[in-house]
Design a protein around this nucleic acid. Structure first.
Lengths: 331, 331
DNA sequence: TTGTAAGCGTTATCAC
DNA sequence: GTGATAACGCTTACAA
């Protein structure tokens, strides 16, 4: 590997001080320079193929030009979409995105060593002591998709998302609607459960048909038949998360329950494969990518007035839900 | 944000030169030091909560401590698993993993500015000129899951994977086996197609029942019914990639073809959701995580004698494939 | 209109 | 056994 070209090399070639070259590159407005000198410098840069050494810039400016983003699981399409948003925004901000899974806890060491200008944490398993530690380190950081008292965070309108799902089922004529919620420790789950209950209460309908499941397909596949066994009248189920919904489809199929003929299913969060499942899964599309991109923007200095992302929330009806009127009318 | 503790701070506190502190921290074997001095230094480090400034280390040592990993699509579970492997290996190597999507081409600038100690590219849309540029920059880099003449790369045994799928179908009694291959420009696709043909040829069976599809569910959903229309005798289909297989299930369902009763399906590459689809999808599990982890190890200096990863390849039979003998016997 | 110089915090090579 | 010094490549206030 050949030695890299430095500012000094350019300076030597042109016969000018490196600092001048630096100022030309950075288009320092306080610099007045003869056009021909500037031109010569530009040409030399071109000729030698100069690119600034980011490591030196980093040290000099005490900033790493990197943002961190840690998620529980790369394979979850929800996190993938958040990451994508963060990736785009980082690139736009001229920074790189360092990603990792929260499990190995590497983000603390990264923050301590100054390798991150900011950090996004998308995870329920980041504990209070880790958060305190981050605060004491002094890196800007944000909880993403999780609200916690006294911490800076960014969330989407989960309550509204759940309402959209319920309203969609109501519009299809369902009057007995069930809920497979996320785990109790998850605040997104409780906000969705709240939206579910409120929407039904406002419609003058009961909202007690609910069971809770983990954020996993396996858990959803158990929960769905269980819900129907406990509440046999239920004709539509709002599933709090996509993995659970996929599991629910599988679990119901195995139990001999037909979707959507016997029960309609709608999930919170949309994702690519929803379109390809059998049956195609109805979802509520939420602004996940914005969760990532806005997170980066806040880390980069944008004001955080409101933790709630105000993006579009959209019910996407596919084959897993159907109108109740397609059932034989009561005698 | 308070000023960070530096080596000099420790030195001042203990009454010793910063360089000595550095040598203690790095456990320099060439350092002889009084045990009590060492102890005092250790205590001061503890007391002031010192952590080395990675930015300064980076500049001094001309290494960024970061590896890059760029994929076409974060949402594809295949790439997610490769990323996970790379993430683990990076953490183990004391480096961070910078990820991004190949589309915005940011990796070139990262490489040029010295922000990466090495780069893994998992993508069919990285062109020859980009590769040449990377070579001229001098960063170690590797194509992952793609073989290209004259380039350093890392692949898995796709041919063997396809063979495993075919052999599995043969063992179930199928004698007319079709293939939904990946796109022609993809070398993984051609290696899988080769495995498919060889396995059938060696079994004395024809291997002409093949159509090609893009790496997408939508494409697979079109290709599967098409394949059956062209080759009505086919009783089992080997799908070259998971997305295509998911699409195939959907496409066949829509066409009224029952899986596995009318046709068996097996996909190359396993992933979480395979277990939760309806029907549960048979797959060939390939060592994807190792593709990522070994890639990082090679970047970190491990010798690259053989581009082929020699991990386990395992056929996982689930509900989407069944024995041909379950069909009514011919009269 | 340009040059000088002082750092950013570390580490490697000497010197004492 | 420990200290001094230079250097990594860049930026920026100040001097000329």
């Amino acid at each position: 590997m050949v030695k890299r070209t430095t500012l000094a090399d350019i300076g030597n070639l042109v016969g000018v001080d490196p600092s001048v070259v630096s100022r030309v590159i950075r288009e320092d407005p306080a610099l007045s320079i003869r056009p021909e000198t500037r031109k010569k410098i530009r040409e030399a840069i071109e000729k030698l193929g100069y690119h600034p050494n980011a490591l030196a810039q980093n040290l000099r400016q005490s900033r790493s030009g990197a943002f961190g983003m840690f998620v529980p699981d790369f394979a979850n399409p929800i996190f993938a979409e958040i990451i994508r948003g963060a990736d785009r925004a980082s690139a736009a901000a001229g920074a790189v995105l360092v990603t990792g899974e929260t499990a190995h806890g590497g983000y603390l060491e990264l923050a301590r060593s100054g390798r991150l200008d900011g950090l996004l944490l998308v995870s329920d398993d980041v504990g209070g002591s880790e958060m305190d530690e981050l605060d004491s380190i002094g890196v800007p950081w944000l909880l993403v998709n999780r609200q916690e008292y006294g911490r800076r965070c960014l969330i989407i309108d989960d309550e509204k998302g759940a309402r959209a799902a319920v309203d969609g089922m109501l519009a299809l004529g369902h009057t007995s609607i069930g809920h497979i919620s996320g785990p109790a420790y998850s605040d997104t789950a409780s906000r969705r459960a709240l939206g579910f209950r409120n929407a039904l209460t406002e419609a003058g309908l009961p909202s007690d048909a609910a069971v809770s499941a983990e954020y996993s397909a396996a858990s959803g596949s158990v929960a769905a038949p269980l819900l129907l066994a406990s509440f046999p009248d239920v004709t539509a189920i709002v599933v709090s998360n996509v993995m659970g919904a996929i599991g629910a489809l599988a679990g119901l199929h195995k139990a001999g329950v037909r979707v959507p003929q016997d029960v309609s299913i709608v999930a919170i969060h949309d994702f690519d494969l929803a379109e390809q499942l059998v049956p195609r899964l109805s979802t509520v599309r939420m602004p996940l990518a914005q969760l990532g991109s806005r997170g980066i923007e806040v880390l980069a200095g944008a004001p955080l007035k409101n933790p709630m992302i105000l993006g579009p929330i959209e019910l996407i009806l596919r084959d897993s839900s159907t109108s109740i009127t397609s059932e034989p009318p009561a005698p």
